[in-house]
Simulated scan of single mutants.
Amino acid sequence: MSGRAAETPNEPPGLTLVSSEGKPYRFDPGALCLELTTTGGPGAFARWEVLHEPADLLAWAGRSRLPAGLDLTVTAGELERARALRDAVLLLAADRAHDRPLRTAHLDVVNAAAAEPALVARIAPDGSRAWAPGATGTQLLSTVARDAIDLFTGPHAHRVRECGAHNCYLLFVDTSRPGRRRWCAMEHCGNREKVRAHRARQAPRKP
Rank of each mutant, 00 (worst) to 15 (best):
M1D: 12
T8E: 11
P12K: 09
P12I: 09
P13K: 08
G14R: 03
L17Q: 10
S19V: 09
S19W: 02
S19C: 08
S20L: 15
P29F: 01
G30P: 00
A31K: 12
C33I: 02
L34P: 02
E35H: 06
L36H: 03
T37Y: 03
T38C: 14
T38Y: 06
G41H: 02
P42F: 07
G43S: 07
R47Y: 06
R47K: 14
W48M: 12
W48F: 15
W48N: 14
W48Y: 15
V50G: 06
H52P: 07
L57W: 05
R63A: 14
R65E: 05
R65C: 10
L66E: 08
A68I: 06
T73Y: 03
V74M: 06
A76N: 11
G77D: 09
G77I: 00
L79E: 08
L79M: 10
E80V: 12
R81W: 00
R81L: 06
A82V: 07
A82K: 10
R83H: 07
R86F: 04
R86H: 08
D87T: 11
V89R: 13
L91I: 04
L91C: 11
L92V: 09
A93M: 01
A93Q: 02
D95N: 13
R96M: 07
R96E: 02
R96S: 06
A97P: 00
H98T: 15
H98C: 10
D99A: 15
P101F: 00
P101A: 02
L102Q: 07
L102P: 01
R103G: 01
D108W: 07
V109H: 03
N111V: 08
A112D: 13
A113R: 05
A115Q: 12
A118K: 13
L119G: 03
R122Y: 02
I123V: 15
I123H: 12
A124T: 09
P125A: 10
G127S: 05
S128W: 07
S128H: 12
R129F: 13
R129C: 11
A130H: 08
A132L: 11
A132T: 13
P133G: 04
P133W: 09
A135V: 03
A135R: 07
T138V: 11
L140S: 02
S142C: 07
S142F: 03
T143M: 08
A145K: 04
D147V: 00
D150M: 12
T153Q: 10
G154H: 01
H156E: 10
H158Y: 08
R159C: 00
R159F: 00
E162S: 15
G164K: 06
A165K: 10
A165W: 06
H166M: 13
L170V: 05
L171M: 05
V173S: 00
T175H: 14
T175I: 13
T175D: 07
S176Q: 03
R182L: 15
W183N: 10
W183H: 09
C184V: 07
E187K: 13
E187F: 03
E187S: 15
H188G: 05
H188R: 13
G190V: 04
G190C: 03
N191S: 14
R192D: 05
R192A: 13
R192G: 09
E193D: 13
E193F: 04
K194D: 00
K194P: 04
K194C: 02
V195R: 14
V195K: 13
R196V: 10
A197C: 01
A200C: 09
A200G: 06
A203V: 01
P204W: 03
K206A: 14
P207E: 14
